[in-house]
């Protein structure tokens, strides 16, 4: 096993966890004034996909996008400043937590409407196909996206045109408080139903970062070689409430034994146990990673809090562009 990969996966998951938990810790200060959907518990899929993708690959996501943005290489300072509504934010304070963007590393945007970026990602893949590179587009989506019309329409077109696009479905089993069973049939899993549409499909355990990495690496290799689109589904679990910094286990919409099981299946702790047991990383390496991350995250929050708010004149700006945008590099 490549030791850089082990370190990168470990670092990426730990960094996402630390960012999300710091947001949760400081959210009650009422300085982050936007709906915020945390990814704690779901770090493995993002970290693994992030290490497989190149900076020149393009990605889009939905409302729970922090982990995707960070794993793709998105600027941490700009993300935290965006959540704080500052002019240094990645969208100059116009978008908040649900509208992240960092085009410099190919993170082309996340939006708040479930399924809304799926066709956008397929359109990006069409542009990549036209340009004739072997870069791909990656669309992060949740299990509720499987219920939208835009998803099936987009999938059909991607398959029809053999577009270089990877659909990454994180199945965390709940849409807000609604379990999968009231929204879809559960007798046949998502990936089996999607396979019936004629797309290259894989499935894996979403809290096993190495397993996700292996599945995604193979799928991406097939896409790059001209095989057309691929759909991967990973089972995982969000720890905290749908939107906000708290745990909501007291509401009773998720069974206690389910919460307990998935909490034990913490993807970060799970991988740490594996790397320590196999001698792939030492405790000192892990501690050093955490120290670096803590320093970076502290600096990012300081950056955000020390940044200016956007001037009021910007409220009505950016409705129309005066000139064409520069093409992506």
């Amino acid at each position: 096993m490549n030791s850089d990969l082990i370190k990168n996966l470990s670092y990426s998951m730990r960094r996402i966890r630390t960012v999300e938990e710091t947001i949760a810790e400081r959210y009650s200060e009422q300085q982050m004034r936007c709906p915020t959907h945390l990814s704690s518990g779901q770090e493995a899929v993002s970290a693994a996909v992030g290490t497989v993708l190149r900076p020149t690959d393009l990605a889009v996501s939905g409302h729970r996008a922090h982990a995707h943005y960070l794993a793709k290489g998105g600027n941490l300072n700009a993300m935290i400043a965006e959540i704080y509504g500052r002019v240094t934010g990645c969208a100059r304070g116009k978008g908040g937590s649900m509208h992240l963007i960092d085009e410099s590393i190919g993170f082309m945007g996340s939006t708040a409407i479930v399924g809304g970026t799926v066709p956008v990602g397929v359109g990006l893949a069409y542009s990549l196909m036209m340009k004739g590179t072997d870069n791909i587009a990656c669309i992060f989506l949740g299990d509720a996206v499987i219920e939208t019309g835009a998803f099936y329409e987009s999938l059909n077109f991607a398959i029809l045109k053999k577009l270089p696009v990877l659909f990454v479905c994180e199945n965390n089993q709940y849409s807000v408080y609604s379990p999968l069973s009231v929204r879809q049939i559960t007798s046949r899993p998502i990936h089996e139903r999607i396979a019936g549409l004629g797309i290259d499909t894989s499935h894996g355990y979403g809290n096993d970062v190495l397993g996700v990495h292996s599945t995604v690496s193979q799928a991406v290799a097939r896409i790059r070689s001209g095989n057309g689109p691929a759909f991967v589904e990973f089972d995982t679990y969000r720890w905290r409430e749908h939107c906000g910094p708290n745990y909501d286990n007291d509401l009773g919409y998720r069974p206690d034994d389910m919460i307990e099981k998935w909490t034990k299946e913490d993807p970060v702790a799970r991988f740490d146990a594996h790397t320590l047991a196999e001698g792939l990383m030492a405790r000192a390496d892990i501690d050093a990673q955490q120290r670096d991350i803590d320093a970076e995250v502290t600096a990012a929050f300081d950056f955000a809090l020390n940044s200016d708010f956007p001037p009021i004149e910007e409220a009505g700006q950016h409705i129309f562009a005066d000139k064409p945008s520069e093409d992506l590099q």
Binding site: M108, P119, V120, V122, G123, M130, E153, S154, F157
Partner: peptide, 14 residues
């Protein structure tokens, strides 16, 4: 609906 989104994505891609 999707073809409109695909047009948007293609436009973002140049």
């Amino acid at each position: 609906n999707a073809m409109t989104g695909i047009a948007i994505g293609a436009s973002l891609g140049g």
